[in-house]
Design a protein around this nucleic acid. Structure first.
Lengths: 233, 233
DNA sequence: AATTTCGTCTGGCCTGACCACCTGATGGTT
DNA sequence: AACCATCAGGTGGTCAGGCCAGACGAAATT
């Protein structure tokens, strides 16, 4: 006998769901304009206030953009809108940081594996450039965080999987936003820039050699090092 | 000369920001109750409708939960809502099925690995129940899709990493929506339910034996089988 | 002591009004 | 003909007030 609590959906939630469904089915695409609030109100037989609540929710999620005088448009979701809730979760619960690192390891391990199998000459050139840049950073004592990020993104590109790339980007940005201080320290602790560079180089060599297992291993070791350093608090 | 478009913030956006700041500063914690809509309206010197719009937005982001008759509470936001923007973004991106499967392989491989290391007795019991259910489905010729999903979720739970679980769920949901027809066929093709059951069982045995590598291997083989079947078109 | 009722508070939704901004059409000026 | 100003009609933004359903605690009843 399975009796579960009954929870009727609020009107604004229903509206949100309908619009999401329209997007999911491809009936609404980025750039498309939604009917006006007044029209939605009529067609849905609800008050305009309820429509507005729904649109506020969708805007907060980054699904739509509301332009006064013009209308309401479906938009491509900016990465910032994706990252923000995750970053807030991190603020509230530091335990989530280790969980994110584990997730990152899974994603980047797979990306490195696929990159080793799929990387073409232009991918490898790109990584080489970035390694040079990291080396310059090393010599000049610059932080190197920028090139570091771009190196990881280049791996994601070489993997030829945009889902992985997006997930990696999301997780990476979340961490960057939420763990600013400890990330800075990662780059400023004596000896770390050299170690990071060596690790990046190792990853690159494995990818260049088209050795997927070695690539995955190398990136996981790198991320474990990063995890250890981030835990020193 | 940097001239940027001027955009004044809407009142509901200001309210959202204030509440977020309170949370970010630690003045509001999960479980804390916000003032009532009427009180917020007075204290902020805005209309109640604007307050409601802000609360709708915060609820959509998973930051708060609204309980009619009780009030509005800050919520521990490690729930499904934090990945809503990501889920929408994946839907909008319209990725190829294979890309979703590869991402899923990365996430579920790691989840199985961690589950094998962390699963406790209650986790194993849960999986056993679900295997029984799948066996019933097999005997009755029922689709088994529901128990399948729940089995994968149980693995995610046993991994003790809610970020990973959420990401898995998001990717899995995106796939389910994108591949409605071919997914059905996966369960209805002669011989497949038996194979799926055997694979699920293998995954379970590896987790039960606390063998992380075998668990990862088993789930990746399972997902490769799924990928092959989904490609038959 | 246990149960029921009542009062007060909460959120949910509606209606109507008015304001600011945007866009396109129209008319006037150069 | 091209450009500018004005206007009308549409858009979203916000307000105020009303009423309803649900939740909870206190008071009354059994």
């Amino acid at each position: 006998m399975d009796l579960r609590p009954i929870r009727t959906k609020k009107i604004y939630e229903e509206i949100v769901q309908q619009i999401k469904d329209l997007i999911g089915e491809g009936n609404l695409k980025p750039g498309d304009r939604l009917p006006s609030e007044r029209e939605l109100s009529e067609r849905l037989a609800v008050s305009r206030a309820s429509v507005r609540e729904a649109l506020s929710a969708l805007a907060a999620m980054g699904v739509i953009v509301i332009r006064p005088g013009e209308g309401t448009f479906v938009q491509n979701i900016r990465n910032g809108a994706i990252v923000e809730p995750l970053a807030m979760a991190l603020l509230l619960d530091r335990q989530a940081a280790m969980e994110l690192l584990e997730a990152r390891q899974a994603l980047e391990g797979e990306a490195a594996y696929l990159a080793a199998r799929r990387a073409g000459p232009e991918d490898l050139e790109k990584m080489e450039e970035l390694l040079k840049e990291m080396q310059h950073d090393l010599q000049r004592g610059t932080l190197g965080e920028e090139a570091d990020l771009r190196f990881h993104l280049a791996i994601a590109e070489a993997a030829r999987n945009s889902v992985l790339a997006r997930l990696m980007h999301t997780v990476s940005d979340t961490m960057r936003q939420a763990l600013k201080t400890s990330r800075q320290r990662l780059y400023t602790t004596a000896g770390n820039p050299e170690k990071l560079f060596a690790q990046h180089n190792q990853i690159f060599e494995a990818i260049k050699a088209h050795n997927p297992r070695a690539a995955r291993k190398a990136i996981c070791q790198h991320l474990r090092f990063v995890a250890k350093e981030l835990q020193k608090e």
